[in-house]
Design a protein around this nucleic acid. Sequence first.
DNA 1: CTAATAATTTATAATGATTCTAAAGTAGTG
DNA 2: CACTACTTTAGAATCATTATAAATTATTAG
Lengths: 138, 138
Amino acid sequence: MDNNTIFIEKLRSSGLRPTKQRIKICKLLFNRKKTFHFTISDIFKILKKQTYEKISLATIYNTVHSFKEKGYLKEISVDREKSYFDTNTSNHHHFLDVNTNELIDLKNEDVHNIKIKKRIPGKKINSIEVLVKIENSN
Amino acid sequence: MDNNTIFIEKLRSSGLRPTKQRIKICKLLFNRKKTFHFTISDIFKILKKQTYEKISLATIYNTVHSFKEKGYLKEISVDREKSYFDTNTSNHHHFLDVNTNELIDLKNEDVHNIKIKKRIPGKKINSIEVLVKIENSN
DNA sequence: CTAATAATTTATAATGATTCTAAAGTAGTG
DNA sequence: CACTACTTTAGAATCATTATAAATTATTAG
């Protein structure tokens, strides 16, 4: 069973028609060993180089957003200018390298003992996200 | 010594000329008991109501950015659509109420024991920011 | 296989937030 | 008071994202 078949099934099982654009974007995002952190414009640039038949920017937006809705991707907001998406949708934290603007995953076990002592009446905790900014150490 | 005098000195001591626009924005931001979390458009709307002589949007952007540069304000990025500024410039964390989009300060002592076990060679930690998303608990 | 339909893609226009520009106004200095 | 540098301003420009509406494609029923 090749990749295409896997992605076609993945798409179909979540109610998305397996179009060639979606399959191409699936391959780009999910045929990776490591977690992939990207912006929409990263995807646009990569596809522009790779492909003879280009995928329109609108389709990239549509696809990334439907992948997010379907839970294939997680959106991470580290600064106003850049919206990152993450292929690792599990609950985890991040390093942000302020020199390179690169995001790096932190496993949950790499951050321990987060206890929030304060509570807001009538509210419950939904998620806890830690962003560790790092920079060159010299 | 009235407020104006205090703000005039504050501005002058950090190399900003105390113009009436800057003083007005200082009053709006810093004449408060509690920390103030706001967006640029919040400021614009408030000033629009308050003032006979209106302050242009460009000036609000300029002023907020120079206040940030001078260390009067801290910028907080919780989602792509909204960029918040915070009058509390100390190192601290936040609740984000996902129902109301409101940011709430968490004192440093309300979050304890953040230990990051992973290190990236050649990099040092610059800051650790925790964002706790909360929602209605019923 | 074909026709009907519903979903998808696309180019382009529209939007909204922010930044830029260049002219007019203001504060600080001598 | 006069000069210079800084600041404000309206409006234009830019950038990312979203909306639109027509053309295309996938799915379904026959």
